[in-house]
Structures are given as structure tokens and as C-alpha cells.
Nucleic acid binder design. Sequence first.
DNA 1: CTTGAAATACTACTACG
DNA 2: CGTAGTAGTATTTCAAG
Lengths: 176, 176
Amino acid sequence: MSATKLRKDQKRAVAVAAVRADPLQSLDRIDRAILRQLQTDASISNVALAARVKLSAPACLRRVERLKESGLIQAVVALIDPKAAGAGMLVMIGVVLDRSTPESFAEFEKAAQNVTGCMECHVVTGEFDYFMTIRTRDSDSFNRLHAEQLLYLPGVRQIRSFMVLKEILSTTKFPL
Amino acid sequence: MSATKLRKDQKRAVAVAAVRADPLQSLDRIDRAILRQLQTDASISNVALAARVKLSAPACLRRVERLKESGLIQAVVALIDPKAAGAGMLVMIGVVLDRSTPESFAEFEKAAQNVTGCMECHVVTGEFDYFMTIRTRDSDSFNRLHAEQLLYLPGVRQIRSFMVLKEILSTTKFPL
DNA sequence: CTTGAAATACTACTACG
DNA sequence: CGTAGTAGTATTTCAAG
């Protein structure tokens, strides 16, 4: 094996490792432009998208499909305006469980999925076991939710609610 | 004016008030089916969507456009898999400001918008002034973010970080 | 006011260079 | 990756419930 070939193989191995470490690195300027656009507005037609990223339509479509297949684009969805949909109130909730047993956690997680308007639920470090964010209509409806669902979540020692007074920033967009 | 007319007017006023109170009430079964579908997968073609909700393509398209124009559908976007994009770590952050003045809040809010990977930032009631959620790659990158950006946010007295260990639920879907 | 059928314009998609 | 061609879709028009 020649010294040149060895150097080439080495170079390639480094490149592959870099991609593994950060998939974004494997995306060129055009892929990023596509992702930036689709994160903002995915209802744009493929030809318009192609023009925007200065590519032919088929080439652009191939890239988008590759991005979907690779799983980087998880889904294309419609975002609904919560206020218009009658769920203008956002509440963040910290939960402390009674006992820190696997069964206790599993039971809670199963039940939490079914809380009406629950958008996020995560296990966290720190003074809480779980953090949830819930969308509901107003303080009345939240009070009902609190009394009828949250207080009946299994194995809960304490629930602390942080009502959102003002949404400064709320985005699904990812820094690229 | 006849008694019948009066009753009709009354009835209509009640209906209008109901719609104002909850725009979802004004949506029929088909609109809801459309929204449910588009919240899950908006890359579906209009003809396929029409078939799914048992409507002709033009009628379906008109409804979708109406839903967009009314603002109920805020946007159609591509969701990127954070892990695949090299930002698999999620951190929730509670912030307490030094002083509770309008200037202090305004200054903080302006600066918070520019924190790399900040997905949400809200004013909340309770023991914190703000709650933020931040996406980043790993604990190293979060540590850098913490040292280089979070600690320099203006007017901050205390920052408390809750690292997310497990994402149980994370959705943009709305209960309809 | 909304729907559905037909016609047109445009787009997605394929094959190939 | 781009060009050209085909298949299918979106979109308009219009008639009818």
C-alpha cells in the first residue's frame, strides 16, 4: 500500500469520525439553507425552495428526501396557534414523587401522557423529579385540570405550578 | 319586532359569543379531522388529505386555506430531530432577576432571545422570574454556554439549571 | 355559503446525459 | 447535478345543493 493511499484513508477516517460526532458537519451550505427554510415554512413548493437555494428542482427534492430519510427532518407538521384554539394559557409544572423507585417513575410517566394539554414531560435533575408544560384555556380550566387530573397522578408528593404570564420566545427552530 | 325575531337574535348572539370564547367550537368535524392530520403529518398531499376526511380536493383545499388565513394554522414547518442535529441535551432553566423593574425585565428579554439554542423563554409566577428551555449538544457545550452566555445575561441574581435526563413527552400536537 | 365536476396550469417525479 | 419528459397534483371556473 502506498504512502499516498495511507494518507487518504487516514483523512477519510477523520472525516467520518467528524460526521459521527456532529451530523450537521456533514451538511453543506445548501442543506443548511434548505433546513432553515423548511423550519420556517415547509408549505413552500419544491420549485420555489429550489430557486431559493439556487438549485434545480430535482436536485433539491433529492436533498429534502435524503434529509427526511436520514431522520434529521423528523416530520413536517402544522403548528396551531394555541390562543386561537382556545388554549392561551401555558403552565409549567414541577413534580416531586413520593418514592424514587422504578415502579413509581414508570407509573407516573404512563399517567402523565394522558393529562389533557400536556405538551412536554421530562425527567430532570435538581429539586424536581419531573417537569411538565401544559396548555389549557384559562385559570378556570387549569384549576379544573389541577383538581381532576394533576392531583390524581400516581405517587406524587408535591406539585408546584408556574403560570406563564408572558411568552417571550417559543420556537421549534433549530440553530444551524 | 316579533317575538320570534327577538328569540332568533338572541340565539345568534349566544352563538357568536360562544365562537369568540372558543374558536374551536366553530369548527365542524371535518375541520378538526384536517387539523388532527396536519398536526401529525402535513407533508401529505391535498388529494390524500381530502380522501382521508371524505371530501373533494377543492373543498378540502379551501378549508385548509381558510384555516391558515384565520391564523389557527400558524405555520407549516419541518421539525428537526435534535439528537440527529447534535443537540440532544435539553436543559430547563429558572432565572431570578436582581430587581423587578420594567427596564430590568426588558433588558433581560432582549438578551435572552440571543442565547444559542434557546427554544423557550417565559415570564412565570412563583419562585422564578423566567423559565427558559435550551437545547445544546452535551454537558460540555452546556457548560460553555453557561459560562459564556447565561452568566452574562443582564440583571440576573440566580440561575438554576434542571438538566433533562429523559424526555417522556414532547409534542406540538394540540388536543382537538 | 359550501360542495363537487371538469378543465387548465403547475408541480413532483423519473430517466438519462 | 442538470435537462427534458411524463404523471400527477394543485388550482380555477362554474354549476348545483
